[in-house]
Structures are given as structure tokens and as C-alpha cells.
Nucleic acid binder design. Sequence first.
DNA 1: GTGAAAGCGCTAACAT
DNA 2: ATGTTAGCGCTTTCAC
Lengths: 350, 350
Amino acid sequence: MSKPPARPGPKSAPPRRPLTLRDVSELSGVSEMTVSRVLRNRGDVSDATREKVLGAARDLGYVPNKIAGALASQRVNLVGVIVPSLSNMVFPEVLQGISEVLEDTGLQPVFGVTHYSSDREESVLYEMLSWRPSGIVIAGLEHSESSRAMLESAGVPVVEIMDTDGTPVDSMVGISHRRAGRQMAQAILAAGYRRIGFLGTKMPDDHRARKRMEGFEEALADAGITLADREFYAGGSALLKGREMTAAMLRRSPDLDFLYYSNDMIGAGGLLWCLENGIDVPGRVGLAGFNGVELLDGLPRRLATMDSCRKDIGRKAAEIIAGLLPGGVVGGHVVELEPVLQPGDTIRRV
Amino acid sequence: MSKPPARPGPKSAPPRRPLTLRDVSELSGVSEMTVSRVLRNRGDVSDATREKVLGAARDLGYVPNKIAGALASQRVNLVGVIVPSLSNMVFPEVLQGISEVLEDTGLQPVFGVTHYSSDREESVLYEMLSWRPSGIVIAGLEHSESSRAMLESAGVPVVEIMDTDGTPVDSMVGISHRRAGRQMAQAILAAGYRRIGFLGTKMPDDHRARKRMEGFEEALADAGITLADREFYAGGSALLKGREMTAAMLRRSPDLDFLYYSNDMIGAGGLLWCLENGIDVPGRVGLAGFNGVELLDGLPRRLATMDSCRKDIGRKAAEIIAGLLPGGVVGGHVVELEPVLQPGDTIRRV
DNA sequence: GTGAAAGCGCTAACAT
DNA sequence: ATGTTAGCGCTTTCAC
């Protein structure tokens, strides 16, 4: 680590004062107003003038000041996107879906991360709203009272994503995690498994994981069954945690015949552990995860899972914000996607 | 998918015109200037006044307009961060490092994604600069001429990250991928392997992967050895691709005794495939990847790899932008981190 | 097809 | 400790 004598600075005529429309105006001999029109492709401008202006702007390396532009026009091409985390596989895919759709609309996503903290969500949201974005996409339906109030009075489209078990402030796009949990439980029961363990994240604030577990337990209860064992983890390598928790649980409760994991990564860890330890999957023990991550394709055996429709959720949310859905920029859309159960090779066939 | 009759709208007195300082000023009976001071914790304000103002702001649900604020103060608390992708493990960790450091500084990261496209990099950069951020963090040292020009004349700190094999516009933080490739090659040769295959991404624009391979081949050449085989992929599940490529390469070149993968995910796929097919690792074939991703911890055997210092890179870059490094906000920092070779269990011990 | 004036909502700089 | 004035760099609106 070193510090050369001074900042290198551009080679030719380094413009220390940021360039303005006026600079382009002067160099091209055209009024600021016309320069502005050219740069935004607005109104009628003669080809000759356009060329002059574009040339001058390019020569100077002029970059328009959107701050001033936004203040004057009262329009901002930013869409705030707030997610709990980037470190698991799921949110990056949502963001990609959003980006894909927005790319063609002139809107630009701006991402914020909350680390599953309600306080951070509040401050990230406040910060974003202070830039007066054209829309907000935010993960989940559970927010602090203050966050809800901000969303309600933001005066722009708000799309709550991932989850549909609840009431949105404005629009929502997602899946019912409660139902996803139920469906998985039903599939497991239908396959004849009865002594079922649950392994998941500690979820003080992961409401979707909680809802999946609740739905799962409800469906078990309908069949007169209760979870035989459960274990939770926080932090660390999910794959490794999956192994460790699986080992611990099967040692503690050797009579379990199914393990339901709250996500695919720990499920994959469990699967690897079972295979290495010569446990018959799905005969002796069945396994299932959640999310449908791509990684599962490369495992020795296909873990049963349920697709969480991440990319579609991102796309739909973006379409709502961009006013691409039939009806234009109205609010109150509710889009519930249908996760598909992928039985893979880790649930006994019936 | 349905559309309820109308947008729900806030319950009490829905403010359709966005609130301004003036509204808070009127409700609290204090001048706009003083309101502004309270809201920014600037200058001396009596406790009584502060209370009044804060109360009024809260009651109204006022959110300051940073667009106006930024225009007036010529200061923007945004830091533009431009990365090629979010879908592999590596960049999210960089972003996390950046976030961690910036959280305490009042600066806010704004992320943009280029999908390894130079054109998209250019437009994302242009877009970001038009918001006059306080700094730019951008992956890589290779940019289009136009992008370089923008970075040079941006007039704010620019930190190019991940790579130190080249000349930065201003500051850079990263590792030498060329050297990382060399070191891995040397370790492999030292362990006695001689017939070496390379498996990687198609890398028209992944300059760091290219540099690693180049460094790798250089070191082999120093020992009078050339790559015995090579194969590239694009898209799809990296774990699965790793399997497929490994199978294909060992079928084609059965005499290979080492496989060097350009990233850990395809390396992990290769490892799983070898283990399943009863190939003695590291006796018959050695394996190595790159990045040091957490996932490796959960695999049946520890893949040899090299830590790419992702989080530290993010942290250091943020510290430079925030002026936290000794010397304050000067430019031209060069921070070269030292990736550590982790031999794991897939390189024969000598 | 082009230009001049007014003002977006704040804050710097100067009063008081 | 609080208020007043003058812009920040654009775009809107209207005039030509």
C-alpha cells in the first residue's frame, strides 16, 4: 500500500469545476435550453444544431446533472429495491429479474440491504424515499409501523415481494409460503413418512421461513402428526451446517424417517452427509429443501424442493412499477405465483 | 392476479402534494432555515425549538428531499459501486465489505451491474455519475476508452477493485490474479503433477479469469510444461458444468493427473464427480479451484483453492472512498492483498 | 426551431 | 439562537 505524490488527474485541460449545460451552450453557441432539448431528445431541433451540441458535449465529456434535472422536472428514474440479504442465492435472482425488465424502461434500480433488521429496513427506506424514487420494491409484508407509514405516504407505487400471506400496502407479488409448507408436508405424508424432523435457520425476522414452517406443521397436525424433532442454526456455511445438524439430529432421534430443511443449501449438506454415511435415501430417510436453487442440479442426487419463483417475482414486480401490466400505473395489484413441487430423488415414490 | 377498485391510500389526511420544509416550518412556527438545521443536526438550536420541529416533522411524516438538498449543498452521500455480476458468490461478499465500512460514515452505496458487458458498464457508469456521487468503486482495470475518460474526469475518488495487474485511473485494491495463477501452478508442480488440464469459463470479458490462466501457463512454461488440455463453458449451473466438463476431459485425456478450475463451483462439481466415480483424489488426479468460497467447507473433501480476499477488498475500497485511510481523502492508493493458497485435500502432499 | 424567465426545495453565507 | 437572501443546474412554460 503506497501513495504516489499526487492524484494523477486527467491529461488534457482537467475541468475541476464540474461541467454544466452552460459550458456546452457556450462551446456550441446554442442556448442552454436548446442544449437541454438535444440531450434529452425532446422537441424539435434542427439536425445542424443537434450535431453541434452533441459534438460539444462529447468533446467536453459533459455528464448531465440529474440532481438538478430531477429537481426541476420533479421526475426521478430511480426505483428503490430493498432486500434482506445478498449472501444467499435467492435475492440476487430477484434483482436480476427486476433489472431485466427495467432495462428497457429507462428506470434504474437502486438496491438496499437490511440484513433482516427492521431498524435497518427503516433507515434504508427513509434514505431511499428521500431521493423521491419512482417506485419501491420491498421484500416481505412485515414492516415496522414507521416503515409502513412511509410506504403508505410515499405517493409512488409500492410492491411488496416474495410473500403473499398478508395484506400489502399497495401491490404484492410472491408465493404463499404457508401453503408451500403445507404442500410439502402433504407430499411427505402421502409418501408414507411419519417421523419428521425440521431443520432451519433461527428466524426471529425471517417471516417467510417461519410461515413455511407453520404451514408445514399445520398440515402435519391435520394428519394427527407433530414434528418429532427440530433444530435451528445461524450463520456459517449453510452446507456445512446442514451436515452438522443432520448428524446431530439423526444421532439424537435415530427413528426419524424424514428431514425437512428450510432451505436447499442446508438440505444439500444433509444429503451429502447421508450419502457419505451410507444412509438409504429416500428409503430409510427422505429429504426435502426449499427454493429450487440451481446448485441442486450438480448434486449426486436431486434433492426434493419447491421452486420459489424468484426471477418471476422480480420481473412481475418491475412490470408493476413500470406500469407495464394491463391498466398502466394503477396500484393494488396482487400477483400470487404457484411454486412447483419438485420431488427429485429424495422422497420415496408411492 | 386482480386489481381492487382503487389504490388504498393512507388513512388520515393523505398528502398528495409531497411535503416540503415549508410544511414543517408552518406547523412548527419556526423558519425553514431552522427546521433544516434541526433535521440535519447542524448548528445551535434550542432544545425547545428542536422538540417542536421534530414533533411537527414526525406528525406530518416528512421525508427530506435530498435532491434539493444535494443541489443546494453540492454534496451527495452516495457511492457508486459497479460490479459485473451478482449471481456468483464473489461480488455479494465484496458488497458486504463495502456496506459494513460505509454504514458508519453516512455514505450510502448504490450498486450497478454490468453483466460483464463493456457497453453496460459505460451506461451504468454514466448514469451513476449523473447523480454526482462522492466516489466510485468499480470492478476491474479494463474499461472502454469512454469509461476511462468518465472516471478520469469524474472529480471524485475512484477505486478499481479485484485486480492489481494494471494501471488504475486513481486508486486500486485487489490481488494479482496473474500471480495467483503462477502460485497455484508452482504448488501443483511442486507436488509432482505434470499432465495438467484447465477448465474455466469462456472469458471474453472476464479479465481476471484470463489473467489467472495466463499466470498459470507462464509458470508451467517456466518448468517446460504446457497445458495438456483445456475446456471452457458458459452459463448454466456451475456445479453441474464442473461435473460434465470433468467427465468429458478425463474421457478425452485419460492421462491427465491434475485439473485446475477457474472457480470453486466448477471445481466442486469436478470433485463430486471424481469421488462418485471412484477416482483417487489427490492420488490419481489432483484438483484445485479459485476463490475460497464458504461452500467448500461442506464438501466431502476440501478442494484446494486460493482465497480471493473479497470482503477485505470491499472494506479497503470503502475506506479509501470514505477517507478513512491515513492521509484522508487523497487519491492514488494502491492496495495489493495477498491471497493465501489453501491446499486442502485435493493436492498430493509432498 | 429557438430563446428568456421563473422556479423546483433545499442550504451556504450572511445578518440579527 | 434564529431569520433573510441568493442561488445550486436544470426544466417548464410561454414567447417569438
